[in-house]
Simulated scan of single mutants.
Amino acid sequence: MSVSGPAAPSTSPISTAITALRAAGESGDADAVAELLAPDVVFHSPMTSRIRFEGKEEVTALHRDIFAVLEDIHTTEPLARGDTRSFSFHARVRGVELEAINLVRFNDQGQIVEFTVFVRPLAGLATLFAALPPRVSARRRGRLRGATVAVLTRPLAFVLRTADRLTPRFL
């Protein structure tokens, strides 16, 4: 039995799309993400199961907001199973490190039909929670609502970042 060199990379529409999605994320290019989205795409919020963003326009606008608050995005190689890909990324939000996992489902044409994002550690999620929802709320509902959301989220983020720093001292 002979063993040949490594298998050639897959050039399926899904493989091509996940490569493009990772590149768009690392460069903060929401327009490039838009080119990959199915018209009926759904994005599940990492902060609450009560919010989902639906449709190509809304998910593209959300990515503009995401890229406005995240810095230094670096992705990892994807894991694959059927029509789904998963990859992690590291970034900073307001100087706080975060790590996230994107779970992305594609259709047969290689268009993204569903995003689910999971974020850790708690301090990173809390800081993202203080930065992103006020921006999204201001875009969708007006500046006053955005300011109201900011007033509600900032203290929570402060408490959770503080708990993240202090709790390990007691464990």
Rank of each mutant, 00 (worst) to 15 (best):
M1P: 11
V3F: 05
S4G: 11
P6A: 08
S10W: 03
S15M: 00
T16K: 01
T16P: 02
A17I: 02
A17N: 00
T19V: 10
A24W: 00
A24V: 05
E26V: 04
E26M: 01
G28A: 00
D29F: 00
A32H: 02
V33L: 04
A34D: 08
A34L: 01
E35Q: 10
L36R: 01
A38G: 07
P39M: 06
P39S: 09
P39E: 09
D40S: 09
V41A: 02
V41D: 00
V41C: 01
V42Y: 06
H44K: 10
H44D: 11
P46I: 10
T48E: 04
R50H: 13
I51D: 11
R52Y: 05
R52W: 02
G55P: 02
G55S: 06
G55F: 04
K56H: 12
K56V: 14
K56F: 09
E57L: 10
V59N: 02
A61D: 12
R64P: 06
R64L: 04
D65C: 13
I66A: 04
F67V: 14
A68H: 09
V69Q: 00
L70M: 09
L70T: 07
L70H: 01
E71W: 09
E71R: 11
D72K: 09
D72Q: 12
T75N: 06
T76C: 11
P78R: 07
P78E: 12
L79M: 15
A80E: 12
D83C: 10
F89R: 08
H90T: 13
A91L: 05
R92E: 12
R92N: 12
R92K: 14
V93T: 10
V93M: 03
R94N: 13
R94D: 13
R94G: 13
G95V: 12
G95C: 08
E97D: 15
L98R: 03
E99G: 10
A100V: 08
A100Y: 01
N102V: 15
N102I: 12
L103P: 08
L103Q: 11
F106K: 02
F106G: 00
F106Y: 06
N107G: 09
I112C: 03
I112T: 06
V113F: 04
F115C: 07
T116W: 09
T116K: 10
F118C: 11
F118K: 03
V119W: 01
V119N: 03
V119D: 03
V119L: 01
R120K: 12
R120L: 11
R120S: 10
P121D: 02
A123V: 11
A123L: 08
L125M: 08
L125K: 00
F129G: 04
A131W: 05
A131M: 06
L132C: 07
P133Y: 04
P134K: 00
R135W: 05
V136H: 01
V136E: 00
V136G: 00
V136A: 05
S137N: 06
A138T: 13
R139K: 10
R141C: 15
G142W: 03
G142Y: 07
R143W: 07
R145A: 15
G146N: 03
V149M: 04
V151G: 08
T153K: 01
T153Q: 01
T153G: 03
R154P: 08
R154N: 10
P155A: 04
F158E: 01
F158N: 06
V159I: 14
R161K: 15
T162N: 10
A163R: 05
A163T: 01
A163V: 03
R165Y: 15
R165W: 14
L166Y: 14
T167G: 14
T167F: 13
L171Q: 15
L171T: 15
